[in-house]
């Protein structure tokens, strides 16, 4: 169990996909303008990552190595399309606000990266640990970014229409730059710098 836990925990901090590996930055920049969007995107990514890692680990001994990348992409695209159709049917609000970034999970480097670098070389249980760890690490990272952007950009933070807290001063004069793409770059850059300064991320 020690090894399983080690593979699980590495995605959260030491190999965090966003802050350390710098994979999957596109959704991290694009859908972190609100906490709801970030959580919706995380749920979709965790599902796809888990399913693709499980399947890739299961077929890893049979897959012909010259076609492994197309096989992985087909597997990932299948799960993404299934998620996308499900969201469209049952979560139309989230589907609308995630927009193009939902189908774009297909090209999220985290998922293909983990399939190729981890799941195709490790047994099923470890691949599950890797997927959950990386998925939760991604969630942690984009939730942090979304909390900062939504709070500064709109003056309040809400979760599924419940207002968690609000700053009246900021609400009257929100820094709407933080809701725009430029704000996403600023927040990610400052967070990376801060994490490096306190030594959470180490140069390799």
């Amino acid at each position: 169990m020690g090894k399983w836990f080690k593979e699980f925990i590495k995605g959260l901090v030491l190999s965090n996909p966003i802050f350390v590996l710098a994979l999957g930055l596109c959704p991290a920049l694009a859908v972190t303008n609100s906490l709801d969007n970030a959580l919706g995107m995380s749920a979709a990514v965790i599902f796809v990552l888990l399913c693709s890692n499980v399947l890739v680990a299961l077929i890893r001994t049979w897959v012909a190595s010259i076609v492994r990348i197309p096989v992985f992409i087909v597997i990932i695209a299948t799960f993404v399309t299934m998620v996308s159709l499900t969201f469209e049917a049952y979560m139309p609000v989230l589907y609308e606000s995630l927009g193009i970034y939902l189908p774009l999970i297909v090209v999220n480097c985290i998922i293909l990266g983990r399939a190729e670098a981890f799941a195709s070389r490790n047994r099923l249980s470890l691949s599950v640990a890797d997927a959950l760890g990386m998925g939760l690490g991604f969630t942690l990272a984009i939730v942090i970014i979304a909390v900062i952007r939504e709070t500064l950009g709109s003056g309040s933070l809400s979760l599924f229409e419940h207002v968690l807290f609000s700053f009246p001063v900021l609400e009257q004069q929100p820094v709407s730059l933080f809701l725009l793409p430029a704000g996403a770059f600023l927040v990610i850059g400052l967070l990376l710098a801060a994490f490096r300064r306190v030594g959470l991320i180490k140069n390799e």
Binding site: V63, A64, I66, V67, V71, V74, I75, A77, T78
Partner: peptide, 12 residues
């Protein structure tokens, strides 16, 4: 390789 990829696509 061809058969494998074809199978994957059909299942997908």
């Amino acid at each position: 390789a061809i058969a494998f990829l074809t199978l994957v696509v059909i299942i997908s």
